[in-house]
Structure formats: C-alpha cells, structure tokens
Design a protein around this nucleic acid. Structure first.
Length: 348
DNA sequence: CGGCTTTGACCAGCGC
DNA sequence: GCGCTGGTCAAAGCCG
C-alpha cells in the first residue's frame, strides 16, 4: 500500500462541503496558504507527518478566527470572500458534486446570487438527521431479508462468486452530514488525529486518481471519510468526512481552543459557515490574476466551495466571538470558487 | 499476531 | 429495464 503520506510537509488545504468528484468543473475557489506545521498526531506514524489536527490548530491560529468571524454574515464586509468550510447533511451531495459547476455557472450568470439561490441543495438534501447509529453499520429486517435472498442467490452462484455478504439495504439510506475540504498536498490521507482504516478504493470517473474510503477505527464510531485527488490538479486532495465521531479525538491538537471534540463532527473543527459572498465579475478577475495566498506558510491552501452552506448549529463555532478579534485580514485571502468556475467557462 | 491495505465483487441508486 | 457509478464488503496479503 502506498504509505506515502510520510515525510510530507504540510500542504495546502481547502475547505468545502463537497467537491465534484472529478473536480472537473472546477471546484476550487479560495485558496490561501497557511502556516504548515508538522504533525503532532500519532496518526503520523502511519500516515505521515501531516497532522490535520495541526491544521485545525492552525485554523485557530490563522484561519479559524477569521473564518469564524467572517462566517457571520452580518459582520462580513461586502467584499468578504466566501467561506471555506462547508458540510452536507445528506446524500445529494453527490448530486451536487456533479452538478455543482453547472449550478455555479448558472449562479454566476445570474450575477451576485444570494446564498440561498446558490445552494438550493441545502434545502433539497434529504437532510436526514444524523442518526446515532452509523447508517452503514446498523442492520434491519430489510437487510435480513436481503440476506436471505442473497443467500439463495448465492446457492446458485457462489461456486464462482464470493459468498454474498449481508449488505445494508435500507430503503432510504441515511447519510451522515458531510464535511469536505480540499487540500493541496502530496499526502492523500491527512492525519486528523483520528485513526482510520481504509476499507475500499474505487476508480473515479473522469479521473485517473482513485478514491479511497476510510472508516474511523474506534469501536462504535461510524465516521467515514473519502479521499480523492483532483483530476484537474493532482496536487489537490479532496477529503470528505461523513458522520460524527462518538468519541473524543485520540490526539488533541495543540491549542485546540474552540474545537471541542464533541462539537467536532468530523474530526474537523466546528465552523460557522457563512453565507458565501460573491465577488462581482471584475473582482473575480482581479483575484484570479492575483491568487490569494496567505504566506504564513507556503504549504497550506484552503479552498472553499461557496455552493455549500451549513445550517446545523452543532457545527457552529463554540465561541466565535472569542475569535472575532483576530485577524480579519486573512479572510480576504480567500478566492471564491466562482472565479475558477468562471475561468473555466471562459476557457471553453 | 494483530492491524491495516489491497482488490475484486456485490449492491443500491439513478439516469436514460 | 438496463447500464453506469458510487459505496461497501471481506478474503487475502502485507507489515511492524
């Protein structure tokens, strides 16, 4: 297996709710380099020195404060860039992934859109409440029935096929909220302080890079995460968390202020996702010419996908105000996704 | 030996 | 109904 995450310097991270699987449409948006630090997490032993929890810590130090501040629409200056952290509550995320760019295009054509119009999915999504039980872990009578059928079918074919397994078969598969971010990094699997076990890998359509599936190894914790690389930019890694950890992070990030484990749904910090702010065309072009880069550390970039909004309080920063005094300027280093999308459109 | 990754197969959902 | 694709399972193999 490619235990390639080692010795990797911090990378650039981007936050988003979810990213188009192939990135084809151009995800991406805001990017700002952040200070990179080596991993303090134990996970580093396996997955390298990159500690996501460190990243989180960095967020505190550099990003989170401003993000948190900025996430408050009311206090966002008109020119404030869109936020970079998003999460999903369902499943339509996939749908979004595939339609996101299209939607953004439409949005852009419409000019400055209201966040609501930008993220129709937010309200469309199934929004199934995250159930205590991991959706993929629980079993049901349906499953049992399915098992029976599978078993029967297996009788006929298991000579040549693997024995059928009791797959989950929930009528409406409930999905945990999701939280995704982009990371510009050589490292595929970021160390976020939790322990993950890879349980699958799939080729991604329109992308030469496979998608890996990980599950939190802690007993009873059904959090999953997907990791894939952008086909457009192989240096960008998309990590999507799904579910909530039912346990505290094994490795607390240094200075984990405001990132309480219990409020951290995905092993990621809790953010208040602001309504994305869009720049007008001119602004976008300007920013595009001059990408925003926060140079505290040249290695960490965070990109946002303005198409996503958060609406669950549990993701809100426990104490945004405590951070509000910090560094507002950083937010302005975020480049809105629309820029990229628009650029692509123009290219075509 | 335990934990993890790899990998091929299977299942479910969705679009056509 | 069919095919495609995403997501998951679990045996086998690897590694410390």
């Amino acid at each position: 297996m490619e235990k390639k995450n080692e010795n990797n310097p911090m990378s650039n991270m981007r936050f988003s709710d979810e990213i188009p699987s192939a990135f084809g449409g151009g995800g991406g948006g805001s990017i700002f380099d952040m200070a990179g630090t080596s991993c303090e997490g134990s996970g580093g032993d396996k997955w390298g020195s990159l500690g996501f929890m460190d990243l989180l810590g960095i967020h505190q130090d550099f990003v989170a404060p401003s993000l948190f501040d900025s996430f408050q629409p009311s206090i966002l200056p008109p020119s404030s860039p869109p936020l970079s952290v998003f999460h999903h509550h369902d499943d339509d995320i996939l749908h979004e992934l595939h339609t996101d760019s299209k939607q953004q295009h439409l949005n852009h054509q419409a000019g400055l859109l209201s966040p609501a119009s930008t993220v129709p999915e937010s309200s469309e999504v199934l929004n199934n409440p995250a159930t205590p039980n991991s959706s993929s872990i629980s079993s049901s009578s349906n499953e049992l029935a399915a098992n029976d059928e599978q078993t029967k079918a297996g009788d006929d074919e298991d000579k040549t096929k693997k024995p059928l397994k009791p797959k989950k078969k929930n009528p409406k598969r409930q999905r945990e909220p999701r939280f995704a971010f982009m990371t510009k990094s050589d490292i595929d699997h970021l160390d976020d302080g939790y322990r993950w076990r890879k349980y699958g890998q799939k080729a991604v359509k329109n992308s030469p890079y496979p998608r890996s599936y990980y599950r939190c190894t802690t007993a009873g914790c059904g959090v999953k995460k997907r990791v894939e690389r952008s086909s457009d930019d192989p240096t960008i890694v998309v990590t999507t968390y799904e579910g909530q950890h039912t346990h505290p992070c094994p490795i607390m990030p240094r200075g984990a202020i405001g990132i309480a484990p219990d409020s951290s749904a995905f092993g990621a910090p809790s953010f208040i996702i602001p309504q994305p702010m869009y720049l007008n065309h001119q602004q976008q072009q300007q920013q595009q010419l001059q990408p925003y880069i926060y140079n505290s550390t040249p290695s960490l970039n965070i990109t946002s996908f303005p198409g996503f909004l958060q609406e669950k309080p549990r993701f809100s920063n426990p104490n945004p105000s405590a951070l509000s005094h910090r560094d507002h300027g950083l937010l302005q280093d975020i480049v809105p996704t629309p820029m990229r999308t628009e650029a692509k459109e123009e290219d075509q």
